[in-house]
């Protein structure tokens, strides 16, 4: 068995009395895309910052590319590429200047620098924009500049902290495709944090669900979905709410769980979507109630998350207020 690209063992991060990361362990294999999934404030960014030497570990051990991040931080920094959550490329500089400066920060020799910049620009499809100031690019293109910047020194492990936040659906898909291609071409191990479930589902080989600083589930997207009782989710919306609905739905055959979403609206996890659907229609008809809507779908990571944490992933925690700069005049959103 080959050495994992990343091995995290019982790491803990405390800020005073507050424990942001609680005894988390996992490993990422070489060439794997590994996703850390969780709501804002779950501890994903703290985890990634510990692995990328940005903040010290309180306890535990993190081995990245064969080096201990606490003891050999400099060796780790040479081997990793990191794309922080914020867009850190300089808007006043051109795409090429940004890449060149970061290549110099990694002490990449001149000849190699020129070659690497050309290659990464090609990889992220920004070659013809190399002379454009970053502030003139769209949000999706700026994110691609960030990705190119993180790859300009040929890292073996790539960390991306919420790389598609704020992007439109088309740009998000473009980023996913780009990351998949980069992984294949460069044999990159990628660790990505996200709070988008579709992103984790489509992009990641394995996913770790993090909540309140704890790792609550780990596996491939399929494994995680199978770990939840019930193969299907039936979403049913009754015309009016009555207190008996919850109990009545739980009594139906094959139903493993019923989640009340809003007034008259329930998500029913069941082993057989079609059978439960028929039973629901019959139940409503026998009681003289009206069904406003009824849909059947496969179990999603959302259901996985609810199963393991007891709450919806989209119920994001509100981050503590921090100062954010107003957008620069003329900058593209």
């Amino acid at each position: 068995m080959s050495t994992p690209a990343i091995a995290v063992e019982h790491i803990v991060k405390r800020y005073g009395d507050f424990e942001a990361v609680k005894d988390v362990s996992f490993s990422v294999a070489e060439g794997e895309i590994f996703g850390l999934l969780g709501p804002n404030g779950a501890g994903k960014s703290t985890l990634i910052r510990m692995m990328t030497t940005l903040i010290p570990l309180t306890a535990g051990k993190a081995i990245v590319a064969g080096h201990d991040v606490a003891k050999e931080a400099d060796a780790v920094r040479h081997l990793i590429g990191v794309i922080p959550q914020a867009l850190t490329s300089d808007p006043d500089l051109t795409v090429e200047e940004n890449l060149s400066i970061y290549a110099k920060l990694y002490s990449v020799p001149k000849a190699e620098r020129v070659k690497n910049i050309a290659e990464v620009l090609e990889a992220v499809d920004l070659t013809k924009w190399r002379g454009a100031q970053v502030k003139t690019l769209s949000g999706g293109m700026r994110r691609r500049v960030e990705i190119a910047r993180g790859l300009v020194h040929n890292p073996s492990i790539f960390f991306l902290d919420e790389p598609t936040t704020g992007l439109d659906p088309v740009s998000r898909i473009a980023v996913w495709e780009m990351l998949s291609n980069l992984r294949a071409k460069r044999n990159l191990s990628i660790l990505i944090t996200t709070h988008y479930m579709d992103e984790a589902d489509k992009l990641c080989d394995r996913i770790a669900i993090v909540d309140h600083g704890k790792l609550v589930a780990l596996g491939t997207p399929i494994e995680l979905k199978h770990s939840v009782p019930g193969a299907n989710v039936v979403e049913v919306h009754f015309d009016r709410e009555t207190p008996e609905w919850q109990a009545r739905l739980e009594c139906l055959d094959g139903v493993t769980s019923v989640q009340a979403e809003s007034e008259g609206f329930y998500r029913v996890l069941t082993s057989s979507g079609s059978k439960t659907t028929m039973q629901l229609v019959e139940l409503a008809a026998s009681l003289g109630e009206t069904l406003t809507s009824l849909s059947v779908q496969n179990t999603t990571l959302d259901d996985v998350f609810v199963h393991y944490t007891g709450r919806q992933l989209r119920d994001e925690q509100v981050k503590p207020p921090v100062f954010t700069l107003p957008p620069r005049p003329g900058a593209q959103p």
């Binding site: 920094r77 914020a86 867009l87 850190t88 910047r149 700069l325």
Partner: peptide
């Protein structure tokens, strides 16, 4: 300080500088 707030320094700190 603006660069710090924008995360530019975070970009520097992950490099071997």
């Amino acid at each position: 300080i603006d660069d710090k707030a924008r995360g530019v320094h975070e970009g520097y700190l992950v490099t071997p500088i």
